[in-house]
Structures are given as structure tokens and as C-alpha cells.
Design a binder for these strands. Structure first.
Lengths: 216, 216
DNA sequence: TAGATTGTTAATCGATTAACAATC
DNA sequence: TAGATTGTTAATCGATTAACAATC
């Protein structure tokens, strides 16, 4: 495998392959072909093969890829093997739901603590600490945290982002439905529910309209 | 405005413009130029103008677009003006967080009720009903629900999706980290946190590596 | 009128797909 | 060997960007 720069489109498909591979039953054969994966996921087989070529050191003709090593290769490429510590700002319902989600461990994500302007309690149901926002800076510095998760209301998102950046954070996972202005070296990943809803809404509108016309 | 088919890329940018426009202060002038929006959102101005041309009946040279009507045009295009009723499957933490989120009203989304194999309570904090899953079919039929939101564990996502489709649902917003197999006319919109995490993780890996090299 | 801004047509860029050669 | 599958090179497609004409 050569170290090539990877495009965002490829990058976003890798976790799809990963979950598919990990969900295969124990009883499945140790090898899997790009063809089989493509069929199962409803994708083009050349695309799958090309994507895998970016992270794997190759499959064997006629046999395919060794499932276990493919999983390892993708996980390693995505950096899921070394855990990333993160802090969460905004311990509302969504924030607490994310804090309690056990599945993040599979992605190497570890939410250390949450911070809130006005914490309702000092720990989540799972026992993770919830601190007043004033403690954020010291905490981030001492734990060398590089990632922040924003689950605050839209109107406080920008100031929370500014605060995180001042604490030395390099990447922000933003659940607030708003655009954030940040310096170029900071990565913002918007978990854009509005985007998803737009796609769903327009699809349904079209569907409804179609049905009406058919009913004529 | 002519009815053109819109690409998914444009479609996904529309809600970004919309939130930006809605968040402008009351005191802002009634007109806004594509140039100004592009600068504020860090996008290309031609792209903004082209996107707006898809939904608006045009801005005025030298002046720009009338902010209010632009908002209306986008909302209408996205179908946010007529509400979409939805049911939610899986009343866990994430499910309840979504049920309680007031902001969905802005997107024309109305979560009528949640369903769960084993409801802990019969209503959410906001008073929305939570029913046992057995009641789903009758409910969807009588309320003519077209959209389902999946917040169940990955291992139950496929069966939940099948159930929704059997109930006549046309679009599924899937929060479960798994690939769903559905008939072609059903739209699946994956709220893919794994995708976002992949982007964040790879960015941080690169950042860490870079720092190490600089430290040499 | 001059200049800012719009909308459109053409050029570029990147990503996907198709064709094919290599290999076990 | 034959055939399934891999990996790569070339062709296509779509989306973004650049150039420019139109307009208030």
C-alpha cells in the first residue's frame, strides 16, 4: 500500500465498507470479493475495488480480500486503532445521548467529559463528569484534547467554537444548525440534520405530487 | 423560476443558505447579494448565485435578492411550508432527544409518536406518546405517515426498516450505523455519524503526525 | 453614464465508470 | 488451462469555476 492522498468521497465510503465487513456473520468465509461487497451495498464494483486499493495492500485474484486484514487496514487508515479524546459542549438531551452512546468506542472516539453553562447534574447516567463551562480551558490543556463536540443551541455555537479553539482544539463536530466561522487550520464537520431533512423533504414532496397526478 | 431537476449537491447547500438568511439580524438591510453570502459562508459566489437561481425568481443587479422572499422561496422549494408527519422507531436516548427537539418545526417536520419494542414510559418529556411497536402499522395507516425515523440499535435496523416499509412509509431517516436494503422507490437518508467521524479522525491523525514532524 | 451585481455560456476540474491487461 | 477476480489506464460524466454579456 502506498500513501496516497485520499479524496473526501472515498473517505466517506470507507466506514460504510467497515460496518458491512464487521457485521458479516462469524460463519462467513474468511475471504470477500469487491464484487460481493458492491452487490450487497448497491455500489459499483470498480468503485469498491478502487477504494479498497487506497487502504489495503491488495486482494488476491479469484479469491478476493482477507476479511480480517481488510477490517484492520480500514480501521488503521481511519485511525480508529488509537483513541481520540474529545470534550462535549452542551449537556442537553442530544449531548447526553451522545455521551451515553457506547458505539463510539468502535470508532476510537472517547468522550472524556461534558461542559455546560448551567449543568443540571454533575455527571451523566453513565457516570461521565459534567462540568460548568468555566472548567473547560484547564481541562482541555491538561488532557491535551484535540476534538470538541458541539451540542449547544445554534445561538451559542459560535462562541462555544471560539472557546474550543482558544483551548487548542483542532477539530469540531458540530451538531448545532448554524454555520461556524473558524480559522483555516481548524476542521469543522457539520452533522447537518437540516441537510438530511432537505433531501427527505424534497423526495416526499415529489412523491406526494406524483401520487396526486396518478390519482387523476 | 422554472422547475428544473435539482442535483443533490445543490439541494444540500440550500439549507445552509436558509439558516444563514434566517439568522441575519432584524436590523440587516432588506437586500442581500450572492457576493455577500458567499463571503460570509466561505463559498464561491458563482456557486451561490447558480444555486439561488434554482429556487428564486431572480435578484436585481446591483441590489441583490430580497431577503424575505429568498427565505420564502427556499422554504417553499424544500417543502418546509407544509409539515411532514413522521414516526420514530426506538425511543432510546437519541430517539427521545430527537422527539424533544423543537427546532424540527422550522423544517416542517412533525414527529407524531415514537414506537419501541419495550417502552420504558408511555410518553416523552414533552408529552408525545410512546407506543409498543405492535401499534405501529395501525398508527401509520390511520395517520397516513410517509416518513420514519430510525433510532434503534444497528442489529434491529433492517427489520425496523422492513416494518416501516410494510406500513406504507416512503422515506427513512436512518440513525443506525448500518446499511439498509430497501426497494428502489424508498429513500434512505443515512445520518451517518461514522462518516463524519472518519473525516474528523483522519484530519486529526494528519494533524498529530504533522506536529510530531515539526517537533523534530 | 459607470459600476455593482445578476444570470448564462464555455472551460476546467474531479470523480465515476468502462475497458482491458495481469494474476492466481 | 480457463475463469474469476484484481488493479490500472482511458473515457465519460457531472459539478465547479471562469469568462462574459445583460441589467438596473
Amino acid at each position: 500500500m502506498e500513501k496516497k492522498t485520499i479524496s473526501k468521497s472515498v473517505l466517506k465510503r470507507l466506514p460504510v465498507y467497515l460496518t458491512y465487513l464487521k457485521n458479516l456473520p462469524e460463519s462467513a468465509p474468511p475471504n470477500i470479493s469487491a464484487t460481493a461487497m458492491a452487490t450487497a451495498l448497491g455500489m459499483g464494483e470498480v468503485q469498491v475495488r478502487k477504494d479498497l486499493a487506497m487502504v489495503s495492500d491488495g486482494g488476491r485474484p479469484k479469491i478476493g480480500y482477507l476479511r480480517e486484514s481488510l477490517i484492520d487496514d480500514i480501521e488503521q487508515f481511519l485511525g480508529y486503532d488509537n483513541t481520540t479524546d474529545a470534550v462535549l459542549i452542551g449537556a442537553g438531551k442530544l449531548g447526553q445521548a451522545l455521551m451515553g452512546y457506547q458505539g463510539f468506542a468502535d470508532y476510537g472516539l472517547n468522550i472524556l467529559a461534558a461542559f455546560d453553562i448551567n449543568p443540571k447534574t454533575d455527571h451523566s447516567d453513565e457516570g461521565k463528569p459534567i462540568y460548568p463551562i468555566e472548567k473547560l480551558t484547564a481541562f482541555c490543556r491538561s488532557h491535551k484534547v484535540l476534538m470538541g463536540i458541539l451540542t449547544v443551541p445554534a445561538e451559542h455555537a459560535q462562541e462555544a467554537a471560539d472557546l474550543l479553539i482558544a483551548c487548542g482544539i483542532k477539530a469540531i463536530w458540530n451538531f448545532a444548525p448554524t454555520h461556524l466561522d473558524v480559522p483555516p487550520h481548524i476542521l469543522i464537520q457539520n452533522e447537518n440534520m437540516a441537510m438530511s431533512l432537505a433531501v427527505l423533504s424534497v423526495h416526499l414532496q415529489a412523491q406526494i405530487k406524483e401520487e396526486k397526478e396518478n390519482a387523476k
